[in-house]
């Protein structure tokens, strides 16, 4: 499974890097602009009379603060996900008393099959 996951993560990395390497932004006024903002611009282009009728209650005062909050959002999510996976991994490997998992029973019943990995 580890090999499969590493391959998948490698593919993800390639998909992220590809647009940065390929000359896809040739002729674009603003390379890698956000799609949300582009949609906003498209609206104002075809409907110049449209007035947004509500403003955000609070805006990050600078791009730095905005990136801080985006990083915080990602960190909170990744932290919790990592905590959960690490906790369950530790429990499934150590056989702690709290553990009543099927994998543990598998290990007890078939120690030889546990040596060769569970099929993915």
């Amino acid at each position: 499974m580890t090999r499969i996951n590493l391959t998948l993560l490698g593919l993800v990395l390639a998909l992220v890097l590809l647009p940065l390497i390929l000359p896809v932004t040739g002729g674009l006024a603003e390379p890698f602009a956000g799609a949300d903002g582009q949609a906003q611009d498209a609206v104002t282009q075809t409907h110049p009379d449209y007035q947004p009728w509500f403003e955000p209650l609070w805006k990050p005062p600078s791009g730095e603060i905005e990136s801080l909050l985006f990083a915080l959002q990602a960190a909170l999510g990744a932290g919790l996900l990592g905590y959960y996976l690490g906790l369950r991994r530790g429990q499934s490997l150590s056989g702690s008393p709290a553990l009543r998992g099927t994998r543990r029973r598998e290990l007890d019943d078939h120690p030889q099959s546990a040596a060769t990995d569970a099929p993915d």
């Binding site: 590809l18 647009p19 674009l28 890698f32 602009a33 956000g34 799609a35 949300d36």
Partner: peptide, 8 residues
């Protein structure tokens, strides 16, 4: 980044 030259 996406191959369209924008981000989402």
């Amino acid at each position: 980044p996406s191959v369209t030259g924008s981000c989402s």
